[in-house]
Nucleic acid binder design. Structure first.
Lengths: 207, 207
DNA sequence: CCGGGGGTCAGCCGATCGGCTGATGCGCCC
DNA sequence: GGGCGCATCAGCCGATCGGCTGACCCCCGG
């Protein structure tokens, strides 16, 4: 009993790579390839695969999240295993909210991919380690709770200020700004200021 | 004939500094001080100053933009001269939209402040040089029009990616990413990635 | 047929960032 | 009265960023 797979990724090279990889492993059969979200939705209905390997970034048209939502909308629909490069909080929660069964990072080892596909085929959730910790964090603390001071820093950050400028604006030292920033990154699940601003705006953490 | 001034800044130290500065110059009279937006609105109505010196960042409560809106709402209302630390595009346009007569940076020389206040008292617009150039840019190019490619880069930027990662994601070189980023900064009127993300989110340039 | 806009790339350099380890002071709650 | 969360600060270091200059290619329109 082989697991029938539908690939969805806007990069032909990536699809070819996955095709070769899955073809070399027993028990898997790639029954179709989609280069866009629309195509994936159509092929999923037509080919009725066991698992859809879905990238989130799909260029023009509907994105991977929307495609996932449509694919998993019907009854007896295939399981969607998200396979993407990024593990942003927002991406993860949106994908899971859209009905994804698993969430794997492309940086994962091939063996992990194989077992994740088999898990997904049976409806079992499979998550990459970094993703799993994010999800756990969400379970524990719900949405990130920033302290007042951290929100101050975040506000200045959204103005595009540098650490030294933030320090002067808030009458504290640069070292303190960096300390706060580190904690903000931690809470928001990012590791750059741009990412922090992005998450902050999306979660409406700022006035 | 002296110019009656109302100060509005949430930092008492700043207010004291301005008070001393304006007190030392002939022709100016500080008739009141406000530490919050609400207070500024109330005092402006009560004291009827010629000019309100308004900071945009006011801590809790309504911000400087909203205070400006309310102060300039009535007939025969005082002129509001924004005096702040930052010259973000968003701040400038919001302040001007709210009815500010001038927009000065705190980094400006005191003489500039004096003449700006006198200009404002007579309804003449006074802008700091960096602010003026921003406004001009807006006049020329209307709202920033980013190319498709620039939006691609911006999208990755909002994911918090570094230049190298963006390059790999879009199959271009790091040098090209930096070139695009520079143009994006230019168009959005910022000079950091965090600022770019902030403006992008506010202008809804991203899906 | 040439100009211009858009996209691509290179190399250089100082400034900044982000991670790390470690430390102090303050208020609060059990 | 000791733990704990929060805010503050220091110094170090490699990695990254942002600005600058200069260049090539393609396509479109005058």
């Amino acid at each position: 009993m082989t697991t029938k797979i539908l690939l969805c990724d806007d990069h032909a090279v990536v699809r070819a790579g996955l095709l070769a990889l899955l073809g070399s492993a027993p028990g898997f059969e790639v029954v179709g390839e989609a280069g866009s979200g629309e195509e994936a939705v159509a092929l999923a209905a037509k080919l009725r695969p066991d698992v859809v390997l879905m990238d989130l970034q799909l260029g023009p048209g509907i994105d991977g999240v929307e495609a996932t939502r449509r694919i998993t909308a019907g009854a007896d629909s295939p399981h969607v295993l998200v396979l993407t490069t990024y593990d942003t909080d927002a991406d993860i929660t949106r994908a899971i909210g859209a009905g994804a069964t698993g969430y794997l990072l492309k940086a994962e080892r091939p063996e992990e991919l194989f077992s994740a596909i088999q898990d997904a085929a049976q409806g079992r959730t499979a998550l990459s380690a970094p993703v799993a910790s994010r999800v756990m964090a969400h379970m524990r603390g719900a949405r990130p709770t920033l302290t007042d001071r951290e929100l101050d820093i975040l506000g200045q950050l959204a103005h595009g200020l540098g650490n030294r400028e933030i320090a002067r604006a808030l009458f504290i030292s640069e070292a303190t700004v960096k300390t706060h920033l580190g904690r903000i990154y931690d809470k928001l699940g990012v590791d750059t200021r741009a990412g922090a601003v992005s998450v902050a705006k999306e979660q409406r953490l700022l006035p």
